[in-house]
Amino acid sequence: MKVADILKWENTKILCCEESIANIITDGYVSDLLSDVIAHANENMAWITIQTHKNIVAIASLKELACIIITNNNIPADDLIEAAKQENIPIITTSMTSFDTAGKLYIALHY
């Protein structure tokens, strides 16, 4: 699936990098601990988190993740969006919880 497919879900919004919505998603990762993500996430994963500061963009870029999905109505910091534009990492926000987002993504990927 592609990042664009997530944007078809209700209650999701893309905040930047629409030029990268064709990024392929092959898997997902749910974590709010940066060391966990840097160690275990892999390229083309969609990262589901409640973190909203710009360091998550650096990690997504280093790990070549497909996109970041910020859940539970958390609003990313302005400098996060600036960083994401530079690194071309799509930032999606949703009102869903991390659990519900992961469930939806899992079904979309595997069923």
Partner: peptide
């Protein structure tokens, strides 16, 4: 709070 400081850094470095 930023999601760092989980006590995984040095072990991650050793592992990799």
């Amino acid at each position: 709070e930023l999601g760092f400081g989980a006590g995984m850094g040095l072990p991650n470095m050793k592992k990799n």
